[in-house]
Amino acid sequence: MKKITNLALIISLFVSTFAIAAEVNIFNARHYKADAELYGKFTAKTGIKVNLINGKSGALEKRIIEEGADSSADLYITADAGRCGAMDSKGALQSGLTSASIKSAVPKTFRTNKWVGIAKRARIIYYSPERVTGAELSGMTYEGLADPKWKGRLVIRKSSNIYNKSLVASLIANNGKKAAAAWAEGVVANMARTPEGNDRAQIMAVAAGEADIAVANTYYLALMLSGKKGPEQQEAAGKVKAFFPNQNDRGTHMNVSCAALVKGAPNKANAIALVEYLLTPEAQEHFTNNTFEFPMIDGVSPSPLVVNNLGLDFKQDMKTKLASYGKKQAAAVEIMTAARWK
């Protein structure tokens, strides 16, 4: 008898106890401090405990897939529609995000039955007003990045970056694989340096004079301007300007942070409730003010920093379905690799 007690004690040292209380398990690849605060608010409101496992998206996805039907994951939250799409194509997701409140809050372009965008961002062009003239930029498109006039003037991240994969996937969806392949070669030829660093590093490269234009997401400039990255970067951000491409045709390439419903989720209802909460004005305001993303729903305004420095009234690409980012991802990787995009 004593042996059994000892054994139980030893086992309990190793195995974390799984509380049966109302909870929702999130595999979280978005690690903004602000998100954690938001989950805290959700728990306070609903009594549903939010369990987090943070990690990089790849490892989290792998774990969800390997755990299969027994996965404890309810929601997978990540910062790119391409990732949600890829998870879907691997059969790791289930439908269920179909409640009326979700459907009414999120435009069709930005959701499927299995995953839903919870905040928007655009991938845009940043330029140095000192070295790039208005005429050069006039009517600028993503396609135009391959124009030889930008030779040696462009910086962009590595091809392994998911934002780039999704951008190229959208170009394949719109222009076809062949045209996109030619475009990728043009872009590589224009690069001012071998791709390195994150989005913010691209913006700073323009500020520092290493390049004239950079491709990066919208919220990074706001983040730098906010001073959260220190006064030097605040100052650097003042040296670049944002430009929204493709205003004369389909609109600027949009992407979302998304929440996906995992197949076999043990707390499906709680998961849906959390997604619904994330789409409330309260949560959306929290996003816009802390992460500087664009709100997913109407009626909430982006952070003043975004509004003042990036502008608000740009034409978003509502035509290209975000689901295509996942579907065309493999082709996008193939094209970039073939173009020797590092």
């Binding site: 040292l13 190793f14 195995v15 974390s16 755990e67 027994d70 404890s72």
Partner: peptide, 9 residues
């Protein structure tokens, strides 16, 4: 799986 994956064990 839960005993081994995502546990201290």
């Amino acid at each position: 799986k839960k005993v081994f994956i995502g546990s201290v064990l």
